[in-house]
Amino acid sequence: MSEDTVDRTGLFGLQKDGSPIVDAAVLADRFNLAPDLLMDHLRRGLVRSRVEVGTGADAGKRRLSVRIGNRIWVAIVSEDGCVLSEEMRFLRMTS
């Protein structure tokens, strides 16, 4: 997604420690999945995620990475939960 088309509204809630909370419908949309299928993937342990806290010039930002299969969605989120940038990456499958 280009910088010009990024939705800068607050798509995420924040926990008390500042970690983002992603609504299942929002995440399902990013992966082009039905919310029920995303929840099934979560229950089966097929969804991996990581939150990295920005330091220095990136203080106050979080990088959220979510992987399902060979797809990784990465979003940079501000302190107030607004998406600053996002992109979908595809891993090359090796044999």
Rank of each mutant, 00 (worst) to 15 (best):
I72T: 14
V66A: 04
S85H: 12
A34E: 13
V26H: 13
R62I: 00
L64F: 12
G56I: 08
I21T: 12
I68G: 00
D58Q: 15
L64D: 01
D36P: 02
P35L: 15
G56F: 07
I68V: 14
E86V: 00
A75F: 00
D36Q: 10
V66F: 05
I76C: 01
L27V: 04
L38C: 09
R63P: 00
E79Y: 03
A75W: 03
W73E: 08
I21W: 04
R30S: 05
N70P: 07
V77W: 09
R44Q: 14
S65K: 13
R30N: 07
W73Y: 15
V53G: 02
G69I: 01
M88Q: 12
K61R: 13
R71W: 11
A57L: 10
R71I: 10
P35Y: 08
V22C: 10
G81Q: 08
L37W: 05
A34T: 04
D29C: 06
R30A: 11
E87Q: 15
R89C: 06
D29S: 14
D80C: 03
R48V: 08
L64A: 05
L46A: 11
C82D: 00
G60K: 06
P35M: 11
D29A: 15
G54A: 07
A57W: 01
L33Q: 10
P35T: 10
R62M: 05
G81D: 04
R48T: 09
E87G: 06
R30G: 02
R43V: 07
F31E: 08
A24M: 07
G60L: 10
K61L: 15
V26Q: 08
R50Y: 04
D29Y: 02
R67P: 01
I76A: 05
W73L: 08
L27K: 08
R63I: 12
S65Q: 14
